[in-house]
Design a protein around this nucleic acid. Sequence first.
DNA 1: CGGGTTCTTGATTTGTTTCAATCGATGTGG
DNA 2: CCACATCGATTGAAACAAATCAAGAACCCG
Lengths: 255, 255
Amino acid sequence: MDEETAIGPADARAGFPRSCAACLAWEQGACGALSRSELRRLAAGASRRRLGPGSPVRFARDGADQCVSLVSGTVKLSRFLGDGRQQIIALPTAPRLIDPPFGSRPDVGAAAVTEADICVFRRSVLEAIARENPALQHRLHVQALAELEESRELLLTLGRRTARERVSAFLLAMFERRSVTARSEAGPATIDLPLSRSEIGDYLGLTIETVSRQFSQLKRDGIILVPDARRVVLEDPRQLIAAAGQAAAGNSPTG
Amino acid sequence: MDEETAIGPADARAGFPRSCAACLAWEQGACGALSRSELRRLAAGASRRRLGPGSPVRFARDGADQCVSLVSGTVKLSRFLGDGRQQIIALPTAPRLIDPPFGSRPDVGAAAVTEADICVFRRSVLEAIARENPALQHRLHVQALAELEESRELLLTLGRRTARERVSAFLLAMFERRSVTARSEAGPATIDLPLSRSEIGDYLGLTIETVSRQFSQLKRDGIILVPDARRVVLEDPRQLIAAAGQAAAGNSPTG
DNA sequence: CGGGTTCTTGATTTGTTTCAATCGATGTGG
DNA sequence: CCACATCGATTGAAACAAATCAAGAACCCG
């Protein structure tokens, strides 16, 4: 997606902070746009943490000087209504800056959905570096635009798709973002779901029961197989695509 | 929101391209971060156009070298399903870059909802300038993050709010973005709606009939007055806020 | 094996859509 | 100036999809 990493391949990591040298998110993540000295500056105040599924990610409320990077795993970002209704608004996977610099994000909650590693560092330092380093700035910008696109796709789903279309579209999306190792495997396509039924509901604006019913329905229709609750195999991808209610070109039909 | 304009106040416009000197979006928009020479470079291939309500904004499909800036008015950005179902995903107001550089935006449609002026210029030139001009880059980045926040707010609305809550939240949002002149007026707060009932439906993921019914209901409850279809006066703002189902802090109640 | 959690399935209710008719404003031509 | 067509908005009745309420089944872990 982006050629210009400021630093060389993995074997050239000498001179970098130790924690960064071992970091999986090193090259692809935002840090890949950083020079040795910048990385050292950032790593100074940084700390790593491992999270189990479900553990909340504490964001810097009240303007504390923090910034969270997701180094491995998947988290859910949610917004809430006063009575507890929850909507998952994004499902970032590593490597990704959740809670990015310059953002004004209000009442967003975050929690790990898989095992996850996060790296917390000083927001002010990253912002300062970004202001001097166009490559980093550009990376962050492109990242934000990608998240905007994802968000808008979900908007279409929540606003206009039926329950069946929502879970079909969700399965398709999970299929497309599956890991490279899973992608290269032969045989029928298998999707590992990072979310529970309840979380899928919170993502798709549905109840857990409706999600479950749609799974059963797709199963009965011979479109998917569900060997266990966290896995789905695609029997008939063609039909799943049809069931998702595909998006169309943006030329408004009539105003 | 952002102090660092690269150039001085309005009376210092000498030396700028003529069309830019007269441009309303000049300082606040992205162009405000540009130097004289950069602005001249950009204005070279630029063209202005006035759009009536409903007219589609032609985006550069198939990678044509174009970029659209909204100079005045409001447009709707929509996504579509194959059978024509429409979801409005954003309602940008001037000054704003719709169809911004570096974005990969797929099948997004755009149409003016009010009278609108747009400025079309060469995408490659803006991208080139952005890569050299950190202030512009930063502005575009902050802009993208703001749009992401708006999008996520709408996500919460579409995923978890009832019809009544949706139109209440919509009215509140329209109230908050009303013009400065309208804001300073005395007397009961009046909201001018830029959208028709049908467009409000497309924005809130509802049908036109449901939108209409909710307006009538809020009227009957003494919360709003509807002097005509395009205007709403707030009788009881407190109750409207309650009816919108207010958002809560992001600390997940339980996972 | 028990105890808890998650998932599934069924019956019923409810909110929203769909279908259909009417109203009101605006504009046109006779 | 008044019938008449048009378009958006409103209202009503019926149909429907998803939520809610309520059991049960499957699975996991100690």
